[in-house]
Design a binder for these strands. Structure first.
Lengths: 189, 189
DNA sequence: GTCTATAATAGGATAGAC
DNA sequence: GTCTATCCTATTATAGAC
């Protein structure tokens, strides 16, 4: 009766990384087993419904992490500018400067699109709403704030796609760096 | 000895659509067989190395199509503004207003990233170069032209990710609509 | 150039011991 | 909670007839 080798959260983090790198369909149970150091049966012990359960756990944990490290800080203390820069730093670490892909994009594009659409929607929506909230607080009209927030998220996702395609992460860093200023630029209206 | 049911190009188009919808790993031979109307053995007759061959054919054809319908027209006749609007219209049709995903993004993010990195790079690079060329022709400094071109492509890819995640294609249309004006905006330098 | 049939393997999932 | 062993289906791939 060997003890649990990893905490549940640590196991989920490793599952997330495997799915970011291989996609849902590309991440076989053998891969996921190797990634976590758990045998297939152990994975099924923790996630009885198999890969679907694992992805639900991954998305749940991701939502927690993003809420704590991105969404809430965006509504927190500090100038709007500083808070956006903090978001950029957190994202830079999470995506390892553009070297790691986004699990959300992978799940949204692949064969799993429909299966996980609710959590995908909710996470992206929370992200956009958090940025838009900050921008309205900073004085932008609500419609413009919402449009810019959506544009920001979409650019980050696109930058990760290009970084993966070019095998050159720098495009992600460039995108990250110009975000705060562009988001806060005064309305032309 | 039944005759060929589809032209090669028509078969490749259908393979492309299947991969856009299911991803590389999600598109099984059974799916691809159904998508083309060809039996598995017929697929292997046309693409002896299996799915890898099919993807190479898909990327080859995509490069041809994009060159003829996007890249070359960007360097063609008409005002820069009109040419960018023509690109937007072509993209709107190709991605069905945001309802169909991008095969490039799917291949860049999934388990296939390394396997097809050369054609992926080449296609994205050609696209960016074509837009940057138009922008320099329109009077923008080269560095800015390149940066804006990269940003445009990355936004389109990101918009397709968000459209898939939200199951709401309109974000792609919004992105498409604002591109020409933003790309041609006078340099602030 | 297409098909049916069949192999060979990988993938997902389970049983039962410890 | 983990493991080894096993099962079954899906998937890739091939052979050979027409």
């Amino acid at each position: 009766m060997p003890p649990a080798l990893l905490s549940r959260d640590e196991a989920i983090d490793r599952l997330m990384l495997a799915i970011r790198r291989h996609g849902y369909d590309g991440a076989s149970l053998a891969e996921l087993s190797k990634a976590t150091g758990l045998g297939k049966s152990s994975l099924y012990h923790h996630f009885p419904d198999g890969k679907d359960d694992m992805v639900r756990a991954v998305l749940g944990r991701l939502e927690e992490q993003l809420t704590a490290t991105i969404f809430e800080p965006l509504a927190g203390a500090g100038t709007p500018r500083r808070r956006l820069e903090a978001m950029a730093e957190t994202l830079d670490a999470f995506y390892r400067g553009g070297r790691e892909a986004c699990v959300l994009a992978n799940l949204a594009l692949g064969s799993t699109r429909k299966r996980f659409r609710k959590p995908l929607r909710r996470i992206f929506e929370a992200w956009i709403a958090a940025i838009a909230g900050l921008l309205t607080e900073a004085g932008l009209p609500e419609t413009l704030a919402r449009a810019r927030a959506e544009d920001a998220v979409l650019r980050l996702e696109g930058a990760l796609v290009l970084a993966a395609a070019f095998e050159d992460p720098t495009v992600f860093g460039r995108t990250l760096r110009q975000l705060p200023a562009e988001l806060l630029a005064p309305s032309k209206g």
